[in-house]
Design a protein around this nucleic acid. Structure first.
Lengths: 221, 221
DNA sequence: TTTTGCTTTACGGATATCTGTAAGGGATTG
DNA sequence: CAATCCCTTACAGATATCCGTAAAGCAAAA
């Protein structure tokens, strides 16, 4: 089993819950917990340079702002910089985000090894994930059904981009121009209109305000 | 100190973290943890009817949906129904919501005794809150500054209602009609226009889409 | 009472949205 | 080749938004 694990999680109660479980239910020799991405990175780097690297990083994705000025503000940034230094470290993400597009990109782009979605069984799942990852397998919380887009409607990257832009205050005309500049097709205002209208039906929204609100609340944007 | 405490929190890791801290740092004889509002309510009711009521309820506000059909879906509902049966029970809310309007209304309407905002020190704050509430005082996470509307722009209840309706897909015309039916004044479409435009400036939003997205992400809606 | 200041309201014009219809462009199939 | 399907695009009309101006209402101050 892993001997050195690093945990980055900003909620103190959650953090303690994880540490407690790892100490009691797995025989981990050394567990280091941190509440800030920056501090976690410093721990990682120091250990790496001393030739005693962490074998596993367990991190959240979102971290609250604080009075302390921070270089790293999200778990994704932390993973990127850590993986850039140590390609061998294993990474498990423990977050409440359940947007499958987002999670898929963590596996393909950040090359994470496991994803646990916070919930009523997530501590058990995390233990499970650690064991799987230790044996060089990947783990994803079973309720997510990553590859089978079976259950509900899902947005592709294109839809996601449009909705993100809309939620940032861009008009459809501006988005159309932006897509043309970036040579992304389709890019007509009309098509954007259609795409968004389709999403109204799929998500049961009355208009764009409603759709944006729903998607943000669902953590999809 | 309290002898019987009931905890309602749906994230397993957070739940365990809280229980662990209460067991180790306070001498609580009996702690019951539940992952569902409904189950917490059942525990509460049974104990009350047996003449051995819980003295303190610690609850989250938001609970994830699940396959299990639920009557109670939020901490607010749980508090209402519990307080309705037992006026003596003390309530501490432990949530990540930091919207001061919302929190204030929990104190005035749900008559809660303490509010702890999840974060890097929230476990210590929770211990503190329990001790304060035990001595019949109230507790609010210090970083919140509830009464001093000092720092950033805050919305009053009126603004909040309008933004909530907009985010649910109502047009300003519909909202105007709704306000008139409820005899709430002001209620002209024009005034609603002005109010929203003013919020654009205060929150640095380009349009309504942008404003709604920002406010939801800040947890204000 | 008049003045002043603030909020609410009405209204109009420019812009954006939402929602049809219709036309054009591939790709696939028979 | 034609037929079909699906996606993209153009366009147009109805509705909604954004934003300015101006008038009306109201309360406190002069």
């Amino acid at each position: 089993m892993f001997k050195k694990i690093l945990i980055a999680e900003d909620f103190q109660d959650t953090n303690k819950g994880i540490v407690e479980a790892l100490e009691n239910r797995l025989q981990i020799e050394f567990i280091q917990e941190e509440l800030y991405c920056d501090k976690a990175y410093n721990r990682f780097k120091l250990a790496y340079e001393n030739g005693e690297p962490y074998e596993l990083l367990i991190t959240d994705l979102t971290f609250k702002e604080s009075h302390v000025t921070r270089r790293l503000t999200s778990g994704k940034e932390l993973i990127n910089i850590v993986k850039n230094i140590d390609q061998n470290i294993k990474v498990i993400v423990n977050s409440m985000i359940d947007n499958t597009v987002e999670i898929n990109s963590l596996f393909t782009e950040q090359k994470i090894n496991g994803y646990v979605c916070k919930g009523r069984n997530s501590l058990n799942e995390l233990i499970n994930a650690i064991q799987e990852v230790y044996h060089n397998r990947t783990f994803v919380s079973p309720q997510l059904n990553l590859n089978s887009a079976s259950s509900v409607f899902e947005m592709d990257k294109y839809d996601l981009m449009i909705l993100k832009d809309l939620s940032e205050g861009y008009t459809k005309k501006e988005i159309s121009e932006k897509l043309k500049r970036q040579n992304i097709s389709p890019n007509s205002e009309s098509t954007i209109d259609k795409k968004v209208s389709k999403l109204f039906d799929e998500f049961g929204a009355k208009n764009t305000h409603h759709l944006i609100a729903k998607l943000i609340k669902q953590g999809k944007i």
